[in-house]
Amino acid sequence: MLLPHRAKMCDKPDLSEVEKFDKKKLKKTNTEEKNTLPSKETIEQEKECVKSS
């Protein structure tokens, strides 16, 4: 039995809650990117592992 096209729920998501959302209620956050470089010792250890394998 085939359902009519309008019966498919996945065609269009319900955006009613998104449309009502008030972004003024969001808190301001500060993001910090942490990209630490490996230490000299860590680099040497990695080199030793690569050489031994």
Results as ranks from 00 to 15, higher is better:
residue 37 L to F: 11
residue 50 V to F: 04
residue 30 N to H: 04
residue 44 E to T: 13
residue 3 L to H: 02
residue 2 L to H: 02
residue 11 D to H: 12
residue 39 S to K: 06
residue 49 C to T: 09
residue 18 V to K: 06
residue 20 K to M: 08
residue 20 K to F: 08
residue 52 S to E: 01
residue 29 T to S: 10
residue 10 C to R: 11
residue 14 D to F: 00
residue 48 E to V: 04
residue 52 S to W: 01
residue 33 E to Q: 02
residue 52 S to Q: 06
residue 36 T to A: 02
residue 23 K to H: 15
residue 38 P to C: 01
residue 11 D to L: 14
residue 35 N to L: 10
residue 30 N to C: 03
residue 47 K to F: 02
residue 35 N to V: 05
residue 52 S to I: 03
residue 46 E to A: 14
residue 12 K to D: 00
residue 11 D to Q: 12
residue 18 V to Q: 08
residue 17 E to D: 11
residue 20 K to E: 11
residue 22 D to L: 12
residue 53 S to K: 15
residue 41 E to Q: 07
residue 38 P to L: 01
residue 50 V to Y: 10
residue 1 M to Y: 07
residue 12 K to H: 14
residue 38 P to M: 02
residue 49 C to I: 08
residue 35 N to R: 09
residue 45 Q to A: 07
residue 11 D to S: 07
residue 10 C to H: 13
residue 46 E to C: 14
residue 18 V to F: 10
residue 25 K to A: 15
residue 22 D to F: 10
residue 23 K to E: 13
residue 40 K to N: 04
residue 1 M to K: 05
residue 48 E to T: 02
residue 31 T to K: 11
residue 46 E to S: 06
residue 6 R to V: 10
residue 49 C to L: 09
residue 27 K to S: 15
residue 46 E to V: 08
residue 7 A to W: 03
residue 46 E to Y: 05
residue 32 E to T: 09
residue 29 T to V: 15
residue 15 L to T: 07
residue 19 E to S: 03
residue 1 M to F: 07
residue 26 L to R: 11
residue 11 D to V: 12
residue 3 L to V: 00
residue 7 A to E: 08
residue 40 K to R: 13
residue 17 E to A: 09
residue 33 E to N: 04
residue 1 M to D: 00
residue 14 D to Y: 00
residue 8 K to N: 12
residue 24 K to A: 12
residue 32 E to S: 05
residue 40 K to T: 07
residue 10 C to S: 10
residue 43 I to W: 01
residue 13 P to W: 04
residue 7 A to Y: 00
residue 15 L to Q: 00
residue 50 V to C: 02
residue 24 K to E: 13
residue 43 I to S: 02
residue 27 K to R: 12
residue 39 S to L: 01
residue 19 E to D: 04
residue 46 E to K: 11
residue 51 K to H: 00
residue 12 K to F: 06
residue 29 T to E: 15
residue 29 T to D: 13
residue 38 P to Q: 04
residue 44 E to I: 15
residue 31 T to Q: 14
residue 23 K to V: 13
residue 7 A to R: 10
residue 12 K to M: 08
residue 19 E to T: 05
residue 24 K to S: 14
residue 39 S to R: 02
residue 18 V to R: 07
residue 28 K to L: 06
residue 22 D to W: 14
residue 29 T to R: 12
residue 52 S to G: 00
residue 6 R to D: 09
residue 7 A to I: 01
residue 8 K to W: 14
residue 12 K to C: 06
residue 48 E to Y: 07
residue 47 K to G: 03
residue 9 M to A: 13
residue 39 S to N: 03
residue 51 K to F: 03
residue 39 S to G: 08
residue 32 E to P: 01
residue 10 C to V: 11
residue 46 E to R: 11
residue 47 K to R: 11
